[in-house]
Design a protein around this nucleic acid. Structure first.
Lengths: 354, 354
DNA sequence: GTTAGCACTCCTCGGCCAAGAGTGCTAAAG
DNA sequence: CTTTAGCACTCTTGGCCGAGGAGTGCTAAC
């Protein structure tokens, strides 16, 4: 991967990629001659060499050069200026997260919005998910004669709600007592452990009422669903802005992007991969085996608290993407979100029990 | 609006519109001659009359006819067959809602998905919102030494969560006691009433601790925000499928739709209008004053429990939309959702107090 | 009132050509 | 051996033209 390239050849490659990212037009030898202080013929020779090396290509004889996947890859790994976001931008982002730090379920909206604006492409964010969710607390609230609202709080802070049928005339006091008992029974338990509590009735003293069993089973089911992330949704933002990029001149491109985002590729393939990796993942075009990604690049990072709970944040854009800026943005925002989550319950890791 | 049109002329108009909806191609006199049992010349005469009446138009001399806004309007109000969904479809939809009836926050996802598939256009759904939200219940859950999770349940069943800073070493028992006191203080109260509780400290006996005031203020703020629907989001689905329609041949169309959905037109203009109206609203093309809607039609219906809590469900598509099917779908799904919400807490309306 | 016939209009699409962009090669210069 | 000027060559792009075709509007006959 790390090819032998002399200094000037690297400069040419870098210049081609930067200009192509900037203008979306194949770059001609003439364009670089001036800034490199050599003639266009010399640049052409260098370009031809880079093309032999598989880093550049061109669309037809009389067209300028543009990078291949390998070219972009080399750029990202060896050539690119790793510019961080300006401190001003960092402050703004921090500030916005600070504003809503208490509203957990707005995080993903904010993260997607900020990332889309900062990286100037479409952003994707998944909500944080526990590897193994642990029970924290339930609450039972009477809604009317026959219905009860079950609010389930999981350890990493996510809240699930559900309604359950109840015996008529169950009072709120009774419900609170029941909730209290279940909270003790299920304290810190995993989904499996809770399912067992409902099934191995005999060990419970006094035995559980049928309503209590129903509640416990509902809790177990909700936690299992949560772990299998049946409900996991990808939130995205910035699609509209991305459509102004020239690569989206025809509607099929738009359809491709939408079907990557909403049609499963993201969820089935990219997100799991990002969850399983450390650091920022950069996937350029056809490097990924999924054919529908051929013309797109994806930059993803896990965020969260190590080994405890994690989500994914990142961007999706055309292969011709502002890699330096996008990578910095993804890295920075993943960091901010991880810090915030650390504040919320990272400490618990250090002080083992509550 | 209700023009004088003889029977045959109505038949011609209806046939033109149905065929145009079907094929997206201007319809020629020849196309209708067979099915109407007259010659193409006769059809042409009728078409010319309909054009004079402002119900049809054509793009250039040698092109077939297509409906104007007024033509579609006449069709929707006087000509269209009001076919209900098949009982099989109805059962399927009912069944799907039944499956997730307990998971309130999945309703809008399901509704949008089902509607998009049934009506075969893009669907939009807003979550149910109370006209004036009333306090139901809070719960305070210790997350770690310095942070507390506040879970707020509103009367119509929605749940808000928020984290608050707390004195170190506050125990869960203390928090539960505080929650209990606040639950009593705020019982069934409105946002304003709760804000007053926090401000008119003097009336409280014993006086509220600073943490209690913080909690109450947070509750009041959350409820106010909820009423002003600062956070109200429109969920949509089916965009990808709609892009296969021939009107989306160029990307500007896609941008237009996205900016209607996400750029404010929906939220600022259409949703409030639908919330304020009874029944199914049909807005055809330029009938609405917003220029960006010129080429689109919108069908919206309020759903919910009358005077208590309501949301909006509907579809957005090209003007050439399958009105009969879309209108039936929107009406039916709004009905199903209203029924479900009625089950949840509509009864309360009949039995005045809890 | 209906319809056959026909002239007329306007769009669509393919082919063609000129202009332009940019390369690759060659041969000369450094 | 590297660099560069020069030039022929290739391929795209955009405009233009003209044939073909679709569908109308009108007129005159039924």
């Amino acid at each position: 991967m790390h090819l032998e390239l002399n200094e000037r050849r690297r400069r040419v490659l870098k210049a081609v990629i930067q200009q192509y990212i900037d203008t979306a037009t194949p770059v001609a030898s003439q364009d670089l001659a001036r800034s490199l202080g050599v003639s266009s013929a010399t640049v052409r020779n260098e370009m031809a060499a880079l093309e032999d090396a598989g880093l550049l290509t061109h669309l037809h004889t009389s067209a300028g050069r543009l990078p291949t996947d390998a070219g972009y890859r080399f750029f990202v790994e060896n050539l690119m200026d790793r510019a961080a976001l300006s401190t001003q931008e960092q402050r703004m982002i921090q500030h916005q997260f600070y504003q809503i730090r208490s509203e957990l379920n707005q995080w993903i909206h904010l993260a997607a919005a900020v990332l889309a604006r900062t990286a100037q492409t479409a952003a994707v964010v998944t909500p944080p998910r526990a590897y193994e969710s642990r029970f924290k607390h339930i609450e039972l609230i009477s809604i009317n004669d026959a219905l009860v609202l079950l609010v389930l709080v999981l350890h990493e802070g996510s809240v699930k709600q559900q309604t359950l049928p109840a015996d008529p005339n169950t009072t709120q006091e009774q419900l609170s007592r029941i909730a209290g008992r279940i909270n003790e029974l299920c304290h810190e338990a995993s989904a499996k452990a809770i399912a067992n509590i409902a099934h191995n009735q005999s060990t419970n003293q006094p035995p559980l009422s049928s309503f209590e069993v129903l509640v416990i089973e509902s809790v177990a089911r909700a936690m299992q669903q949560f772990e299998e992330h049946v409900n996991e949704l990808i939130h995205h933002d910035g699609l509209l802005e991305m459509l102004h990029q020239p690569e989206f001149g025809q509607v099929t491109r738009v359809r491709e992007v939408l079907s990557i985002l909403e049609g499963g590729t993201m969820l089935e393939s990219l997100i799991p991969q990002a969850l399983a990796s450390d650091g920022v993942q950069v996937i350029i075009g056809g490097e990924h085996s999924r054919d529908e990604l051929r013309d797109y690049s994806v930059i993803l990072s896990r965020y969260g608290v190590n080994g405890d709970v994690a989500g994914v944040v990142g961007v999706l854009g055309p292969r011709r993407m502002a890699y330096p800026r996008s990578i910095s943005s993804v890295r920075y925002i993943a960091g901010v979100m991880s810090d915030l989550m650390g504040d919320l319950y990272g400490e618990r890791k250090i002080e083992p029990s509550e």
